[in-house]
Amino acid sequence: MNLFRLVADLSHLASIFILLHKIQTTRSCRGISIKTQLLYVLVFVTRYLDLFTGDFVSIYNSVMKLFFIGSSCYIIYLMRIKYKPTNDPSIDTFRLEYILGPTAVLALIFNYKFTFLEVLWAFSIYLEAVAILPQLFMLQRTGEAETITTHYLAALGIYRGLYIPNWIYRYFTEGGAIDPIAVVAGIVQTALYVDFFYVYFTKVLQGQKFELPA
C-alpha cells in the first residue's frame, strides 16, 4: 500500500458517502444515472468473487470489497424502491448494450488466464472504465448538475486519477511490476473525466453552478 492508493481508496469511499448523503438529504436521486449505479454493482460483484475463493489479501482489502458490494446494492435499493418517484428514466437513455457487449468481448479476448474468475475479473476492469458513461451522458443531456452531484463525480475522478501515480510508484518500487489490463483501462477511465474536471474547476470550485455551455 502506498499513499496514492490509500488516498485514492479513501476518495472512492468518500464518493459513495457523498452520493448517499445527496440522496438521503434531498430525498431524491434526481440527476443520478441508475444505469451507471447498476453497472457498479456488476463491477463489484464480478471483481470481488475472490472473496469466496480463499485468496485473502488483508482485512482492509476484504472490508473494502464487502463495503463496495453492499453500498452499491443499497444505492440501487434507494433509487429503485425508496425514492423511485424521483428517478426519471426518460433522461437516463444511454444504451447499456453499447457498454456490456464490447466489454464482454474484450474480457474474452484480453485476460490473464482463460478461466471463469479471470475473465470476469477482466470484464469488471473494462466495465468499470466505462461505467460512468451513462452518468456523463445524462449530465451532457441536461447540461447542468446539482453541486453535490458534481462533488460525487469529482471524488470518483480523483480516485481513478490517483491510481495512475500508484502504478508508476509500484513499477519503480516492485521491480518493474506492471498490470497492463488495469493500467490501460485505468488510463481510459481517468481520461473520461477530463471534460468534467475542466468545468468542475472553472465553475463549481469558483462558487458557480455546474452548467455546460449551450
Binding site: M1, R170, I178
Partner: peptide
C-alpha cells in the same frame, strides 16, 4: 517489465 495481475488492488 513483466505483466502481472496485481491482486491486492481494489
Amino acid at each position: 517489465a513483466e505483466p502481472v495481475r496485481v491482486k491486492d488492488e481494489l
